[in-house]
């Protein structure tokens, strides 16, 4: 055995192992997006599914994101052909209703789909509480760098993307994120009543 050579050779293993060890700390499924922390692209799109009172908007109305400045906005991209959208639908619908009367807006954006199957899908799923808009030329989807559906973006009161969710979102996560933003908005704006602050975890 030539131990000097052996030692030198063994050193070659270090960078390889180091690279893998570092790689283990990364999530390979994570799709980087430049959006979080930046201002969310605005859109003005036509409502096709009104939702239910008190958070309904009549069909044909135009929802403009810019008009929601000062409120927290949950933008959910979905499609009737998307199976994972079925999983999150009930959670989204229920959570949207919970925040009725607070400065929180939910908007569904239809992605690569047609109105007729989309409406049928909503009926089939037992209704959708919040309004959905159509994005016929996928402009909003392209602006948001959509990778697939469902994807959910949560915008803070300043219109910045606070969170991007790839894949279905749960009621728990949604509530946590929105509550945190409400508290943050309340801290900067003392007028806010912060009614749900009790459930916030640090």
């Amino acid at each position: 055995m030539n131990w000097r050579r052996a030692l030198v050779a063994a050193l070659f293993a270090a960078p390889v192992i180091g690279l893998f060890a570092w790689g283990m700390t990364r999530d390979p499924k994570y799709i980087p997006s430049p959006l979080p922390g930046r201002e969310g692209p605005t859109f003005a799109l036509e409502v096709f599914a009104p939702g239910v009172p008190p958070i309904a908007r009549p069909a044909g109305d135009t929802i403009s994101l810019a008009a929601f400045r000062g409120q927290i906005v949950v933008v959910n991209f979905w499609a009737s052909w998307c199976l994972a959208c079925r999983d999150e639908h009930a959670d989204l619908s229920a959570t949207a209703l919970r925040y009725a009367g607070q400065p929180v807006q939910f908007v569904g954006v239809l992605y690569m789909d047609q109105i007729e199957p989309a409406l049928r899908w909503i009926t089939e799923m037992g209704g959708q509480t919040y309004p959905s808009v159509n994005d016929p030329r996928s402009r909003a989807a392209i602006d948001y760098g959509l990778y697939g559906v469902p994807e959910t973006f949560i915008l803070d009161a300043q219109g910045r993307v606070a969170h991007k969710q790839t894949g279905p979102i749960s009621a728990g996560l949604l509530t946590h994120l929105v509550d945190s933003l409400l508290v943050a908005a309340g801290a900067s704006d003392t007028a806010a009543s912060a009614p749900t602050a009790g459930t916030v975890s640090p």
């Binding site: 030539n2 050579r5 052996a6 050779a9 063994a10 293993a13 192992i17 060890a21």
Partner: peptide, 20 residues
């Protein structure tokens, strides 16, 4: 990761040490 590290180091040590 630990296993690959052990195998890699042992293999390199043995092969280099015996190369002559």
């Amino acid at each position: 990761l630990s296993f690959i590290a052990i195998v890699l180091v042992m293999a390199l040590v043995m092969v280099a040490g015996n190369s002559e």
